[in-house]
């Protein structure tokens, strides 16, 4: 089982991102369970969502405490929420930021992860460029497919198109593609 925890703020499509991830996995014939952790459902408040992916049906219903990957949709959470808590020693961290890891000051926190498992992607900027709105979720999923190799980009693309029809879907696919192209695969085989 591969477990992903997504952190962001209300209004950034954090819950939708987990759902898209689950749809992409479903399209590859796998079992996936996406669910939100509803705190206060206010725009701007910290929000967490989760996605489990497995080759067999998933019975577990607890929140994800030891994720294989963490996606941070909003870098302003880095100082406010323990976003990397429980992250597995060979896990992945993907952070939406135009800054470098050094500038974000989180290299120490993630120092133990293997090379290439921690990356930043300017997802908000890519979303503004392609979609016209600062919604970084689709771009981050493109980057997630690249860094982990867990899902084919075509599946992410199809999931986005399934959820968002027409020009909105195409614009989000373009943002995801740009992020996928800009992200280096971690130097090892897919984990699951």
């Amino acid at each position: 089982m591969f477990e992903v925890r997504l952190h962001g703020r209300g209004g950034q499509g954090v819950v939708t991102a987990a759902e898209l991830l689950s749809i992409a996995a479903f399209l590859e014939g796998r079992h996936a369970q996406a669910f939100p952790s509803f705190g206060s459902e206010r725009t701007g408040a910290p929000v967490v969502s989760f996605c489990r992916i497995d080759d067999k049906s998933i019975r577990l219903r607890e929140p994800i405490l030891e994720p294989d990957a963490v996606i941070v949709q909003d870098p302003t959470l880095l100082g406010a929420v323990q976003v990397f808590q429980g992250l597995k020693p060979r896990g992945y961290a993907l952070i939406n930021s135009k800054k470098s890891l050094a500038d974000l000051g989180i290299e120490t926190a993630l120092g133990g992860l293997p090379d290439g498992h921690v990356q930043v992607v300017p997802a908000t900027e890519l979303a503004v460029h392609h979609v016209g709105r600062p919604l970084p979720n689709a771009a981050l999923l493109g980057a997630f497919a690249a860094i982990t190799g867990l899902l084919r980009f075509a599946s992410v693309e199809a999931a986005i198109r399934q959820k968002f029809k027409g020009p909105v879907g195409e614009a989000n696919v373009a943002a995801a593609q740009a992020a996928f192209d800009a992200t280096q695969p971690a130097p090892e085989d897919a984990p699951c």
Binding site: A18, S22, A32, A34, F35, P36, R61
Partner: peptide, 10 residues
Amino acid sequence: GFILTHAYER
């Protein structure tokens, strides 16, 4: 509520 109502599954 939420655990099932808001879970995306196959």
